[in-house]
Design a binder for these strands. Structure first.
Lengths: 241, 241
DNA sequence: AGTTGCATCTCGAGC
DNA sequence: GCTCGAGGTGCAACT
């Protein structure tokens, strides 16, 4: 059963520090809301002036600093950090640090409105459909979706340029490289397919043609032009469901 | 100044619905915590069984569903959605919907532990250094970092394959394409540079050599081999700060 | 609204 | 630990 969350409204810094410390100690998720500044240094470096934000501390070492806009946190720290909460006078300070790479995030609360520690468990896994893997299964199940006579020979076949999604042969026995994308593609996907085709043409007997087929729901104009210039093909196909 | 957040512990569904509705009405950030299931359908589709999660609703239409692990939300909705909160018996239900593309997220709370509406403002912008743009400025400031005699002629020069980061000439007057990356690069960056070099070699007088230079802190083995095979060059350089 | 490429991308799988 | 590519990527800039 649940006790409900430990919550404090307009707490003193000492009260809040205790709530955060004990919360993280027992693997709770902790949220803080108030006016704060944020400094980050690591792979890049940033500063953020004062503003009202929601700060989420997870027991796995994650930190998220969310403003009232946008899906992405304005600042963050990935899982694996060690959180450290302290007081500097009447200021609550959260330091989250990790190594490899060395990164430090510091949040300083000029004003703290609210602190909560949430205890909970989550045993469920997300079930997601409509991925590139679903598209691959669809093709392996019905190879003629690529073209009549297409025969898959390998998935994730390795080349000096990386792993090919599907490698196979056409009705004439020619090698075919298939690159899959779950959504409309641009020039980057053409570059990827090009790399694979080039690598296999060098790997296999010189002179043997290797066909390259891009499979996606659709392509942009520029991508279509690049495909044509490189002699590559496009098959429109969507992931199932 | 601040009244402090409106907060409810173990609220009834009606109480919570009112708090969420009025909170979003006045552009507050709203958080809910409890045992819930999540269903999503749009660019893909997903289901998530019951578990304890933190749900964040932003006034710009963002939804975030966070478990106690990971930096990324297990489910979400981007800005621009319209939130709808309702009750199904004793169950609180949040529906967030948008168009282009058509997407729907539904969160159903079997048990609701806590609801908060946070009022706040944030006028500060993030100041970030160490980006690719900083690296570009560094090179334009001191072109000899590429090589003695290098002269930048254009940034973001357009080609049929996309825009080139820096286009210039070497001491002999030969065309040089520079591709910048703020961090260690793999085969994808080589493919990108290859596309640009190929495009420019066709655009400029045939026969004129176009050099391709990848600028990054470092490259992977595979990327280095691909560079060599394509006759491209690498200059190790990091963004400033 | 569509395109293009960056991102402190994150994440998982493979090695 | 590093490498590589997918992602419901998000996001800004530009057309």
């Amino acid at each position: 059963m649940s006790d409900g969350p430990r919550t404090q409204t307009q707490p003193t810094t000492d009260e809040a520090r205790t709530l955060v410390d004990s919360g993280l100690e027992r693997d709770a998720m902790v949220t803080l809301f108030g006016r704060c500044t944020v400094d980050y240094e690591g792979r890049a470096a940033s500063t953020l002036g004062p503003g009202d934000r929601l700060v989420v501390l997870k027991p796995d070492g994650t930190v998220l600093v969310h403003t009232d806009e946008g899906q992405q946190p304005v600042n963050w720290q990935p899982p694996g950090c060690s959180h450290d909460v302290m007081t500097e006078g009447s200021t609550l300070v959260v330091r989250s640090e990790r190594s490899t790479p060395e990164e430090l995030l510091v949040v300083r609360f000029e004003r703290l409105d609210h602190a909560v520690a949430y205890d909970g468990t989550d045993a469920s896994d997300l079930a997601l459909t409509g991925t590139e893997d679903d598209l691959r299964k669809r093709i392996l199940d019905e190879p003629s979706l690529i073209e009549p006579g297409f025969e898959p020979r390998a998935t994730e076949r390795d080349t000096p340029a990386g792993a090919v999604d599907i490698f196979g042969a056409d009705a004439d026995g020619a090698a075919v490289v298939v690159e899959l994308k779950r959504r409309r593609v641009g020039p980057d996907a053409v570059g990827q397919l090009t790399r694979y085709v080039d690598a296999l043409e060098r790997d296999l007997h010189a002179g043997r043609e290797v066909r390259g087929v891009l499979v996606a729901p659709s392509v942009t104009d520029r991508a279509r032009r690049l495909l044509a210039k490189r002699g590559l093909e496009f098959v429109p196909l969507e992931p199932p469901e």
